[in-house]
């Protein structure tokens, strides 16, 4: 049996009377690619912030890599990686400076940083651009670099918040190859996306509607259970029932 690295039990977050995340429970095992889906405003971001140790839950419990989301948030932060489309790298630092900066923040030693930097620059074929400012790189390269930097310290779990928005279809797939590779190495991947074909690449997915997890299974089982031809259909069947309209 594989180790459980994310465990949420009736995890809830209220803002005044508004229940953003309503008693969600699920488990994710080591090396799993877990897709976290939901319409805009369903409560995904709030849930993700709690799981990353950035927001205190109102009730319920959760552990991330064995650490408690109430009391051990600093331990959580050391054991996870995070990347979003909105925030990832410093645009006015070079490729090398970004790698060194993040590696330093996660406390890697200088020899380790040097070794990892070389391996990464070769792997992403960024040698020619190592001293270029990140803002001069094409979006697809930035995203691949941002992901690689987010897992440089070999975290147990990496959280990806809509990592592939806007990139071309080939780059999007290259990005997913990096995700697969990380999962093969045992890193658990927790990912949100609006692309339904990407939902199919996950081992299991959950779909949130109005703060609750309304479905959780493998893509194949979800399609069978909802008698749907595609994940698009499954999503539409669930999300059309949503009452909430606010983000």
């Amino acid at each position: 049996m594989k180790e459980i690295v994310i465990k949420a039990d009736k995890l809830t977050k209220k803002f005044g009377d508004f229940i953003a995340t309503n008693q969600i429970s699920f488990e994710v095992t080591q090396g799993e690619i877990f897709g976290f889906l939901g319409a805009n405003g369903a409560g995904k971001t709030t849930a993700m912030r709690m799981l990353c140790g950035l927001s205190m839950p109102s009730s319920g419990s959760a552990t991330i890599a064995g650490f408690d989301v109430y009391k051990q948030t600093e331990h959580i932060k050391q054991n996870i990686g995070y990347m979003s489309q909105k925030f990832s790298l410093y645009e006015d630092l070079t490729v090398k400076e970004n790698i060194r900066f993040y590696a330093g923040i996660y406390g890697l030693s200088k020899p380790v940083i040097r070794e990892k930097m070389n391996a990464l620059l070769d792997k992403l074929q960024l040698r020619a651009e190592e001293n270029s400012l990140v803002k001069s790189l094409p979006l697809g390269w930035k995203q691949k670099l941002a992901f690689s930097v987010a897992i440089l310290h070999e975290p147990k779990i990496v959280f990806l918040d809509e990592p592939t928005g806007g990139v071309d279809p080939v780059t999007r797939r290259e990005f997913w190859n990096l995700i697969y590779e990380a999962a093969e190495k045992g890193i658990t991947v927790f990912v949100t996306t609006h692309y339904m074909d990407e939902a199919e690449y996950c081992n299991r997915i959950s779909i949130m509607v109005d703060g609750k997890i309304e479905a959780l299974d493998t893509p194949h089982n979800l399609k069978t259970n909802f008698n749907a031809a595609s994940m698009d259909d499954v999503f539409l069947q669930l999300a059309r029932g949503a009452k909430r309209t606010a983000d």
Binding site: A39, G165, G166, H194, A239
Partner: peptide, 10 residues
């Protein structure tokens, strides 16, 4: 429709 969920896109 960028960044908008599937339902709103439809």
């Amino acid at each position: 429709t960028t960044g908008v969920d599937v339902v709103s896109r439809k």
